[in-house]
């Protein structure tokens, strides 16, 4: 198995009594990446996360985490992962320190080592000043931080976070994303689910989009928002005014596949070309040489929400 692959899911299928939650889901997650897991409500994200977290046995398919089968090597997997569910899983009558101390002890970490680890995770989550507060009295954002701290206590290599930002105010969301960035720098792999793609856009380098139990897209975030496909690139060229001569010159370039003419009253051309045969500089030089006045030249990028809408189906999922 490729050591760079942390999560390997193949043909994962799960059915609840009334509906098919997952229907043959397959994707991989790379080491030290922040991998977004996006889908509308009821897409099957939480079911996939529960399977990865060893809380739910897969009915069909193979799932491995760090090369360990999640059914056969359940304990080994649990030691390597930290799962933060989409609800607060808290003992509210404990103080923040007691809560982390309990989980540290439950993972068999010795007293001295536990002190250091708890200090570190409290510092990372910026909760050191509230360690003696009762969890019951903390705000939602702070409880989320404590929840994240709990996940980190046994120093897992992979974090499974189920909609960690839901219900947080904008500041708390940004701070949470900063903590996740910091965790990536510390070498953690983060698998994070959300039903809002734009929330993960700046954070994730990879993304998997799930809809109605099917993978609609898995790959880089950039691949999702660009129209480029492998060697075939799509760029937008905007001129000051419509210029047919430029269009003709570009169409004759070797490697140029298609030059889509602009809409009326617009001077924006969509160019599709083989990037191995045609350099960007050549396109620009040809445009200028043919008399075209360049306003902008950039890769064709779809709006994230549009990309999401294109991939997922409208309407509420009905039982299947």
């Amino acid at each position: 198995m490729d050591p760079e692959i942390v999560i390997d899911i193949r043909d994962l299928t799960h059915r609840y009594k009334t509906h098919q939650a997952l229907g043959g889901v397959s994707f991989t997650v790379q080491r030290q990446s922040i991998h977004g897991f996006v889908g509308p409500n009821g897409a099957g994200k939480t079911t996939t996360l529960k399977v990865l977290a060893t809380l739910l046995k897969p009915q069909r398919g193979d799932v491995s985490v760090f090369g360990h089968d999640i059914v056969r090597d359940c304990k080994a997997v649990r030691r390597k992962i930290g799962f933060m569910p989409d609800h607060f899983s808290m003992y509210r009558q404990m103080t923040v320190f007691e809560y982390l101390d309990f989980f540290g002890a439950a993972y068999g970490i010795g007293l001295a080592q536990r002190d250091k680890i708890i200090g570190d995770v409290l510092a990372l989550t910026d909760m050191a000043g509230r360690k003696d507060d009762l969890i019951n009295g903390l705000s939602r954002g702070m409880q989320q931080r404590v929840s994240l701290a709990r996940v980190l206590v046994h120093d897992p290599d992979l974090l499974l976070l189920d909609e960690p930002a839901s219900g947080l105010d904008p500041r708390a969301r940004i701070e949470l994303m900063e903590i996740l960035e910091e965790l990536r720098r510390l070498g953690k792999t983060i698998f994070i689910s959300s039903h809002i793609l734009s929330e993960l856009a700046t954070l994730c380098d990879h993304v998997t989009i799930l809809d109605r139990g099917q993978v609609k897209y898995t790959g880089t975030m950039r691949g999702l928002i660009t129209s480029s496909d492998g060697d075939l690139a799509t760029y937008q060229l905007t001129l000051a005014a419509e210029h047919p001569a430029t269009s003709d010159s570009l169409a004759k370039l070797p490697g140029m596949q298609r030059v889509t003419p602009p809409l009326p009253n617009e001077a924006r051309y969509t160019l599709t070309f083989d990037r191995t045969q045609l350099a960007l500089n050549t396109i620009l030089q040809t445009t200028i040489a043919s008399g075209g006045q360049v306003v902008s030249f950039a890769e064709d990028v779809k709006h994230l929400n549009q990309a999401f809408m294109d991939l997922t189906e409208p309407g509420v999922r009905s039982d299947q």
Binding site: A53, T54, L55, K75, R78, R79, I81, G82, F83, P85, H87, F88, S89, M90, Y91, R92, F103, A106, Y107, G108, R150
Partner: peptide, 11 residues
């Protein structure tokens, strides 16, 4: 308190 999943994650 919805803490069962956190407990179940212990080894």
């Amino acid at each position: 308190d919805q803490t069962l999943s956190a407990l179940a994650m212990l080894p």
